[in-house]
Design a protein around this nucleic acid. Structure first.
Lengths: 208, 208
DNA sequence: GTCTATACCAAGATAGAC
DNA sequence: GTCTATCTTGGTATAGAC
């Protein structure tokens, strides 16, 4: 039965619901989004939604999981290259920034989840641990590149973990202000380049 | 009657409620916070809260308004100095960062509000326009300093409005990860300095 | 001015027809 | 597999005692 399918991206009927939910959650946030909102977005009714998902929290976690999995899939290979750290960092930033814009709905919901402290309560969702683990791995990818840059002498000395905070803050914040409906050709690339320049400048060792 | 007092910071009984509400909203977010949570934090009951405020939304907006007003009061004088732009920018960033930590509850709630798109609906709260106006003024303060730095030749060329996005994103994000309970002496200053260095580095014209 | 008790409603979730 | 109808709960807001 469908209930038993593995989370995230599996199942044909589920995918539609996931996308509708991402849009709905992006519009109004988790609490203010009703199951009817999701059903409306789907052009269906509650019955359909509850056939595939047991609860609103389940849907939400699946959206978040999908968003983080996709982001990690893009960034991990870039972080693991063996060229110079600053170049890798620039590509990671550019790609993360671009994802916040091109996959706006899923990424905005994922960012929402990071901000929720109270996600810890409620029933024991195993997918919650997975999400926290992905977030930690993600942050570590950036911290490692920073540390690598320090060894290479191209990045100024700071605690690498602390250094990731403004970087990821700047990047994640894109989901707050960016409006995908004002899509303007070339805009995504221009913004992504600006972020890359900003972050690299902020971490590079100044020669003055 | 108390109901007629001007919003934000006025009234003796109101101040207590405001502080309790800031703490409660910080803990669980707007929707998940109940009036009973606020009353518990106050060590009182609903009756007290509703004596001073007509609705939950009113309390929330007052917390947000207070947070933004205080932040603006700190930053505006720094932005208006007449020394070099990079120095002013560094002080603005340091101060903003410090406020996110030392006034964590109010500032976190204010950041929450910025992220809510749907605040626009519901009854016509006049204070909403004021809040939006404050946000815009705030962003403009940073954009002006960036533009000034470009005229002075110390800041690299970019759209000043776009340049403020990663800066304010990095700064506001502090409210998400910073935990005031792990207060450790000197931590606030160390973090604030790190942010100042990061932002200035990200915007300064590179001499390479 | 603060409390308790309660009206009222919105929304999550379920039952069962088709 | 999708629907409509309904149950149930939790939370905003109010009434009115003290």
């Amino acid at each position: 039965m469908t209930r038993e399918l593995s989370r995230s991206g599996a199942g044909p009927g589920r995918q539609d619901i996931l996308e509708a939910a991402a849009v709905a959650f992006t519009r109004n946030g988790y609490d203010a989004t009703t199951i009817d909102d999701i059903a409306d977005e789907l052009r269906a009714t509650k019955g359909r939604v509850y056939h595939y998902y047991r609860s609103k929290a389940d849907i939400f976690l699946d959206v978040v999981h999908t968003g983080m999995r996709d982001l990690l899939a893009e960034i991990r290979p870039l972080a693991e290259g063996d060229d110079d750290a600053v170049g890798r960092l620039a590509r990671m930033v550019r790609t993360h920034a671009a994802m916040m814009m091109t996959r706006h709905a899923f990424q905005r919901v994922a960012v929402q989840a990071v901000e929720m402290r109270r996600l810890g309560q409620g029933p024991r969702y195993e997918s919650l641990h997975e999400i926290v683990a992905m977030r930690d791995e993600y942050e570590q990818l950036f911290a490692d590149v920073v540390a690598q840059g320090q060894r290479e002498g191209s990045v100024r000395g700071t605690d690498p973990r602390l250094a990731t905070k403004p970087v990821l803050g700047a990047l994640n914040w894109i989901t707050v202000w960016y409006d995908p409906d004002r899509a303007d050709d070339g805009r995504v690339d221009r913004i992504a380049d600006e972020y890359a320049e900003f972050v690299v400048g902020g971490l590079r060792k100044g020669d003055r």
